[in-house]
Design a protein around this nucleic acid. Sequence first.
DNA 1: CCATTATATTCGAATAGTCGAATATAATGG
DNA 2: CCATTATATTCGACTATTCGAATATAATGG
Lengths: 113, 113
Amino acid sequence: MPDSLQRFKADIFQALAHPTRIAIVEMLRDGELPAGKLIERLGLEQANASQHFSVLRAKQIVVNRKEGNQVFYSLRSPLLVEVLDIMRRYFQAQLTETMAALEEIEKEQGAAR
Amino acid sequence: MPDSLQRFKADIFQALAHPTRIAIVEMLRDGELPAGKLIERLGLEQANASQHFSVLRAKQIVVNRKEGNQVFYSLRSPLLVEVLDIMRRYFQAQLTETMAALEEIEKEQGAAR
DNA sequence: CCATTATATTCGAATAGTCGAATATAATGG
DNA sequence: CCATTATATTCGACTATTCGAATATAATGG
């Protein structure tokens, strides 16, 4: 039933379905960074970070290169950044709706008093 | 560490991290459909479909309304459709890259012969 | 009222994901 | 060579997800 495009999409979404990995991707939007820097800035446990990097590598969301004993990660494509930006708009749209709904409720409660 | 926007994004990505749910969302892009139609067209097991709908409802990706004994589902926002469209571009870009890489390899193997 | 249709929920089994600790591996420098 | 740094992998424990079967609930029509 699922075609390969749908499977691909699901795989990418799965890879992004964790806030830590989103944070990593978002830090990389401005360019390549060493693993150590990502770990430090995001306050991650080293082993756990490595596991998250592994997920991102497996789905080819990031590219890595070695320099000495350091590994540098970068995003493979800027398209993912577009996806995240649309998500921000979606979040804001939802927030706006929720605020409007709350105001409506408060207005009704004010009138009922 | 993760802010609420990142958690939100991760939640939405999680909800989309299954090909069946992507297929459902894609069928809904053209407008509201009854559950039964979705189940029939996608060849889903009823109980499993219901579980997938439940995931989509929980994250407010879909809106549902009842009419008699039928439930109609629709997308809450067109922004998600944009996300899926970017993903298609991403897939195509990856495919193009893979093809190019394969051709490169074949060219090298041809030259090595 | 009862049988049928429509769909949600629960159940249990199996698999997958996530964490931190422990371990392994590679690179560096003294 | 060995200690240190950097990072990947494994382990084990726990949680989450997915499936189909079974069950529950609601609506419909005769």
